[in-house]
């Protein structure tokens, strides 16, 4: 079902983790659909993404697209990071099954959400960046459940 690249990124995800005092954090998706992605960006004074980390709750494709997206933006400046579209993530993974295309969209949104957070914190405007639409907090009440 998945390409070798997807399986590789699922089995050996790159850049998993958190960044303390990150320059920007973005969380997208919701638990209802079964996918949540969180991206942490560490951006230096020249607006270069020095480090990036992610955490994902989701299927194999969700993990692989998050991992690939972090690889694609690492070391780039924020304008270049804006060019990392879902299509670019998919191509880099040699494609995704049709039902999993939404995972790549989520990866793009997660990067954008983290950039948005960075822009807000620093009072700057990033060309072409819009306020993220989906948000983890939609599902927050349900997360209280525990077993």
């Amino acid at each position: 079902m998945y390409t070798e690249k997807v399986m590789d990124h699922f089995q050996h995800p790159r850049n998993v983790g958190e960044i303390e005092n990150a320059s920007g954090v973005g969380t997208v998706g919701n638990a209802k659909c079964g996918d949540i992605m969180r991206i942490y960006l560490d951006i230096d004074e020249n607006q270069i993404i020095r480090d990036v980390k992610f955490k994902t709750f989701g299927c194999g494709a969700a993990v692989a697209t998050s991992s690939m997206a972090t690889e694609l933006v690492k070391g780039k400046n924020i304008q270049e990071a804006m060019q990392v579209t879902n299509k670019a993530v998919m191509e880099a993974l040699d494609g995704l099954p049709p039902v999993k295309v939404h995972c790549s969209l989520l990866a793009e949104e997660a990067i954008h959400a983290a950039l948005w957070d960075y822009a807000e914190k620093n009072g700057i405007k990033i060309e072409g960046l819009e306020k993220p639409k989906s948000d983890i907090h939609e599902g927050e009440e349900e997360e209280e459940e525990e077993y």
Binding site: A31, K32, G34, F57, C59, G60, G139, E142, E145, Y147
Partner: peptide, 23 residues
């Protein structure tokens, strides 16, 4: 899981026994 069935909704059985979506 929804992801194994190709839809976004998880199993109707697990929802019917009252599990929240993410569980």
């Amino acid at each position: 899981s929804a992801c194994t069935s190709g839809s976004l909704d998880p199993s109707h059985v697990l929802l019917a026994i009252g599990l929240p979506h993410e569980i």
